[in-house]
Design a binder for these strands. Structure first.
Lengths: 120, 120
DNA sequence: CATGTGTATTACTTATCCTAGTACACTTAG
DNA sequence: CTAAGTGTACTAGGATAAGTAATACACATG
């Protein structure tokens, strides 16, 4: 299901996070589906359970899965995922617009930027 | 002119960068004014010249100063500084707006955000 | 060409990150 | 209620990266 690439310089847990994100985004894993337990996956990949744990914790922070103690890890709703991403972007946008104002970027410049993107 | 705080956990070069940025933004150091040489400041602070060098390199990357080999480091024009900051913000904004589009944030939402900030 | 300037190379020390070992805590099936 | 499966916390070892220093090089100017 998941495979580690030791030629890849990125840490193992990061590779795992990415693979699961792909599986979820592509719909291979669907809402509320159970992920392999930390132990079973650790056994399968011949690595330490804590490394899987770290990957799962990351996936949870990013809103891709939810965890139930003693039961396992499950795929989160895609709706939630999108909403969360939206909120993130809007928050960043707010902050950036404030900075823009401080630096004296004119409203017209911003609106122009806006329009140019909308047209594509 | 500059002082190191050893209780501060941040690296020395970073403290120096910040102090000079403040001095420049507050106008204590004015355009084309010469900064202390790497050696003299290193001597004064009893640290290695390379650490000062690292700080100055950072300040140059950030557009706060410009360097002339064999002559020294000098305060950059404030105009340039602001322009650079502007470009940075606009670039980030462009990227963020693209992401917003990908996630399906509506034009109305963005415009509303714009307006709310403009009114303050 | 001597002195003051920035720069490059190298190495040492320290802090941070990744992974592992182990023990603990919760949930459910039987 | 206990056994087996689950996630979690704590600690420690090893590798990697970051900060600083020592030293030597290169450019500018009087």
């Amino acid at each position: 299901m998941i495979q580690i690439d030791y030629k890849d310089s990125r840490p193992i847990y990061e590779q795992i996070v990415e693979k699961f994100k792909n599986l979820i985004l592509k719909g291979v894993l669907t809402t509320d589906e159970k992920l392999p337990s930390v132990r079973s996956l650790a056994l399968e990949l011949a690595i330490n359970p804590n490394t899987i744990q770290k990957a799962y914790a990351q996936l949870e922070r990013d809103g891709f899965i939810y965890t139930v103690k003693g039961r396992g890890n499950f795929v989160a709703e895609k709706e939630d995922l999108v909403m969360e991403k939206k909120e993130e972007i809007l928050a960043e946008l707010r902050q950036l617009l404030l900075m823009a104002k401080e630096v004296g970027i004119q409203k017209e410049e911003l609106l122009a930027l806006f329009q140019s993107l909308g047209e594509k």
